[in-house]
């Protein structure tokens, strides 16, 4: 199943989703399509004015352009997702996840999709690490069962 990860660029979540046999939906994949498109010359990421305008689907014109551009990249992934894993309290949120308002909006859009969403907390020690892994594994195995039915 296609599982959206939040933070959408997280190495840890991307790895765990793949490890347990599902397809992570990430910023990296969305951007790869753009950076590989040789017809667009808008480095570094080829997020274009068109993208930012498409972002109006998710947020009005009074919302800063950086938020609309981010939502234009993530919105289609959220729409495509069968499930999502959200890691809360992650101290590592730079780059595409650098804007807190955009991040709040992503969580809200996931909520509105009515798909299974697992919320885990960023682990601070090994015990919490065990909990994160156990919960993610259980959640993803649950998705397998759902798919089998």
């Amino acid at each position: 199943m296609k599982v959206f990860i939040d933070p959408p660029n997280s190495l840890i979540l991307f790895d765990l989703i793949e490890r347990f046999g599902h397809e992570p939906l990430s910023t990296m994949a969305a951007l790869q399509e753009r950076v590989d498109n040789i017809e667009i010359d808008m480095p570094p990421m080829n997020v274009t004015l068109d993208d930012v305008i498409k972002g109006l689907k998710y947020a009005g014109i009074e919302v800063p352009s950086g938020i609309r551009g981010r939502l234009a990249v993530w919105g289609p992934l959220i729409e495509e997702a069968d499930a999502a894993v959200v890691m809360e309290g992650a101290p590592f949120s730079f780059g595409c996840v650098g804007c807190e308002r955009s991040n709040l909006m992503v969580k809200y859009l996931l909520q509105r999709r009515n798909i299974p969403v697992l919320y885990v907390t960023y682990p601070e020690d090994e015990e919490q690490g065990k909990l994160v892994v156990a919960k993610v594994k259980e959640f993803l195995q649950g998705l397998d069962k759902k798919e089998a039915n």
Partner: peptide, 14 residues
């Protein structure tokens, strides 16, 4: 900066 790359303006700045 914040937001330049997702606003499609980084290229213009450079």
């Amino acid at each position: 900066s914040c937001g330049t790359e997702y606003s499609s303006v980084q290229y213009e700045i450079e």
